[in-house]
Write a protein that binds this DNA or RNA. Structure first.
Length: 795
DNA sequence: TCTATTGCGATTTTT
DNA sequence: TCGCAATAGA
């Protein structure tokens, strides 16, 4: 490699040229201190002793020894831009962490001169842990985190560079929407013509591309809805600055803006980061891309790891283009392909590769199994009549696998859209199989948690108007719209935040006595709790606030079924907050980490989630139901984005297939209930795109495709022939007696008391009474039910 | 200010 | 069909 030696480029440890005012202010309110650097770090320029060198060489051998040649190349090519095209299951996390360890072991740089960026907190945590396992406590000092958290870290040091003040708030989607709606009213937008969601989306997309309101290109502006929307974006940004707040998109956008408008700040970071590593590069948006380019401009030692075939977030602003044009952006880039897959069977790999080959504009990559491996089970494709049959069949397969010794934890059902989990959940419940659904509302996004957090935010930053509005009348204190309006007007007149205005207003007679008393109570409560902030441990403080404010009482009185759950969540919050030193730290953390903390180590269960959520995970057995046109690929996607969307859907299918280590089950139904209407459906074109020799087909009798195995050919020649065409050509396989109604009818006579039976809807149960063809059955899960004998079978 | 009704819309969501 | 969100009435 290039003979680069530490020390070649002058002083290795230029102490951060920090502006002291910023630094000291940041220290008080900023949880990210700069203490990651020791004051007098032992430099790599210090001559290492021979013994040290030998030890380092030994460690290096250990690091690199388990890698295949491509991986090794990706790890040891430390200088210059590197793009690692890393197919599913080819060990990309390993490469990334080993590369970091390799750099630090040499050492080519100090930990704080390395930047490692991920998308999720989970990935960041995992990388940090694995790195620590390789190189020890040094790992702590690496700048390792999500794009967002790293941007916050940078912005917190120089908030004034982008018009913020220290201690600025990061809004989540909820606050964002509320703010947006308020502004929409002022700007006289018709929420029917321009739904808030849509506006939000447009603004977000602009931010993803790092456009400030005044920098939006003409055609983009027109596409977004014209000058009125641009003006609205301007107002929205102005309001955010007024509130000393920013939204998620701003974190990236403002950081890039800061770099562009303050070369000295940029230079400081460019000097610092000798090595930059990026995970999931295919998911970066334009703002993230610019951010990386700016930071890497000096040393150009940037290593991006990604897989263009797994780019499934373009609808959220991710630009596959970033990865496709990497070598143009970073001239002289080395491209390393990782194609040896250590996860899936050759059959699964062939199927996935065959499918994804239908996409244009790929960088081209072929997954292959290393060495001689068992071909593995064929991909099981099943056509069924209805979605109920689908759920029934799928759960039966799960039971069979379970009997064969497969662990429930090793199985997953991956669906295109969240609502599809329902049919399987119901079925799993009646069968009594444990499951967990990943996704859905996250803990910190729950209403009650957000309310409690708003109280806390207001304690820490009294100028947080959004938090104020959220809690001032929660629980109901009789402070309605009229009072709030009044507060707004006064606040504007005084030029003060709402809370300060409220505190003043209660001293006057401006308000009606009732409202005044209520508001005074609220303010007094806040002041009382504020005095406790530094003197009470966190869990107790939070509990006190939630209790004394009457918020907990509000839910206790609430008789809706979800109220107890909300109280439980609040209890959980007290526990969660105990892990932090200060309230400020806690709030900072959760504004960035909106994830479901793993409900780990529970009893085993099948995992249900969307294909999107499954990226990066793996299971022994993967079920992919709902492979039907209009569902998967999704009709809406295709309508909105045509061919590009189809390719993204196909990548989603690819992601689904490659999650599996051993077995894949795919199913499609002939009719499906959509919004309670039975709709006939056509098998997904993706089914046709699977290589026939990797597939074992088995369909319910009479159903299209039932003769697949005998015909030995592809499915229909074209997917858009439609149902009729396919049905004609289908063969009925005699004796395929898996159809459930056949079985049920056979079992319709001669039940006795105490007999164990199985019911399609209610699951297993014991007969407690018999009357003609009617049975009373005590079901294990569903309780006592009267059912017709024809609907149960002996268990 | 709270509650009951009506109407609409219904993908994916790492931060 | 079902769930929620906005709006009208008490």
């Amino acid at each position: 490699m290039v003979s680069w030696r530490p020390g070649d480029r002058g002083p290795i440890f230029p102490r951060e040229p920090l502006s002291f005012s910023v630094y000291s202010r940041a220290m008080t309110s900023d949880p990210f201190s700069l203490d990651d650097e020791p004051l007098a770090p032992p430099g790599p320029s210090a001559t290492p002793s021979a013994a040290h060198a030998a030890a380092a060489a030994a460690r290096e051998d250990a690091l690199v020894s388990g890698l295949n040649p491509e991986q090794r190349e990706a790890v040891t090519t430390t200088e210059g831009p590197v793009l690692v095209l890393s197919g599913a299951g080819t060990g990309k996390t390993r490469v990334l962490t080993t590369r970091l360890a390799y750099i630090l072991n040499k050492p080519l740089a100090q930990p704080w001169q390395c930047l490692a960026v991920t998308f999720t907190n989970r990935a960041a945590r995992e990388m940090r842990e694995r790195l620590a396992a390789m190189i020890g406590p040094q790992a702590e000092a690496v700048w390792l985190g999500t794009f967002h958290s790293l941007c916050v870290r940078m912005l917190r040091r120089h908030p004034e560079a982008v018009g913020l003040r220290s201690g600025f708030t990061i809004l989540d989607t909820d606050d964002q929407m509320r703010l947006l709606k308020q502004l929409m009213e002022q700007a006289s937008f018709d929420p029917k013509k321009q739904p808030a969601q849509m506006l939000m989306g447009i603004i977000q997309r602009w931010k993803d591309r790092a456009y400030l309101p005044d920098k939006i290109p003409q055609d983009e502006a027109r596409a977004g809805g014209g000058s009125k929307v641009v003006q609205f974006y301007t107002d929205y940004q102005a309001r955010l600055r007024e509130l000393n707040a920013c939204d998620f998109g701003d974190l990236l956008l403002l950081c890039v803006v800061m770099f562009q408008s303050h070369p000295e700040i940029l230079a400081e970071y460019q000097d610092r980061f000798r090595y930059i590593l990026v995970d999931e590069y295919q998911d970066t948006n334009v703002a993230q891309y610019l951010w990386l380019r700016l930071l890497a401009r000096k040393y150009k030692n940037i290593c991006c790891v990604g897989d263009d075939d797994q780019s499934i977030y373009s609808w959220r602003g991710a630009e596959v283009g970033n990865i496709l044009k990497f070598d143009q952006d970073f001239p002289g880039a080395k491209i390393v392909r990782l194609e040896r897959n250590y996860r899936s069977t050759p059959t699964i790999l062939r199927a996935a590769s065959h499918l994804i080959r239908n996409n244009q504009g790929r960088l081209g990559k072929e997954l292959r199994a290393p060495g001689v491996a068992e071909e593995g089970a064929k991909i099981h494709v099943r056509g069924v009549w209805s979605q109920d049959d689908e759920a029934r069949w799928l759960v039966e397969e799960i039971e069979a696998l379970q009997r064969a010794g497969e662990n429930l934890n090793a199985m997953a059902i991956l669906v295109r859209a969240g609502f599809q989990t329902r049919e399987f959940e119901e079925r799993l419940i009646t069968t009594g199989i444990n499951y967990r659904v990943i996704g859905g509302p996250r803990f910190y996004e729950r209403m009650e948690i957000r309310d409690a957090l708003a109280y806390l935010r207001l304690l820490v930053s009294p100028d947080d108007d959004l938090a104020f509005e959220r809690v001032v009348n929660k629980p109901k204190r009789g402070l309605g719209e009229a009072t709030l309006q009044m507060l707004h007007v006064s606040a504007r007149a005084l030029g003060k935040p709402l809370y300060a205005t409220a505190a003043e207003l209660v001293q006057t007679d401006e308000l009606k006595p009732k409202a005044r008393a209520a508001l005074r109570d609220f303010v007094e409560g806040m002041e009382r709790w504020k005095a406790l902030v530094d003197h009470m441990d966190l869990p107790e403080l939070v509990r006190t606030v939630v209790e004394e404010s009457g918020y907990a009482e509000m839910w206790r009185r609430d008789k809706t079924p979800e109220a107890p759950g909300r109280l439980e969540n609040l209890e959980e919050l007290y526990g969660a907050v105990g892990e932090y030193e200060t309230l400020v730290q806690f709030l900072e953390h959760i504004s960035l980490v909106m994830e479901n903390e793993a409900k780990s180590a529970e009893e085993p269960g099948v995992t249900l989630m969307t294909l999107h959520a499954a990226k990066g995970l793996e299971f022994d057995v993967v079920f992919l139901p709902g492979w039907e046109e209009e569902i998967f690929p999704s009709k809406r996607s295709l309508e909105e984005n045509g061919q590009a969307a189809l390719e993204e859907e196909r990548r989603l299918a690819y992601v689904g297939l490659t999650r599996a280590r051993k077995r894949v089950y795919i199913s499609f139904a002939a009719s499906r209930r959509i919004y309670n209407q039975w709709v006939n459906t056509v098998p997904s074109r993706f089914v046709d795109e699977l290589p026939p020799d990797c597939v074992e087909q088995q369909s319910e009798s009479g159903l299209y495709g039932a003769g697949f195995a005998e015909s030995g050919g592809a499915w229909g020649s074209t997917w858009d022939d439609g149902w009729g065409g396919r049905r004609k050509s289908s063969k009925v396989v005699p004796g395929d007696g898996t159809s459930w109604n056949v079985k049920a009818r056979e079992a319709s006579s001669g039940f006795g008391l105490g007999e164990r039976v199985f019911h399609q809807k209610f699951g297993y149960g014991t007969i407690t009474a018999v009357e003609d063809d009617k049975l009373a059955v005590q079901f294990d899960k569903a309780g006592l039910k009267k059912v017709l004998a024809g609907f149960v079978e002996a268990a």
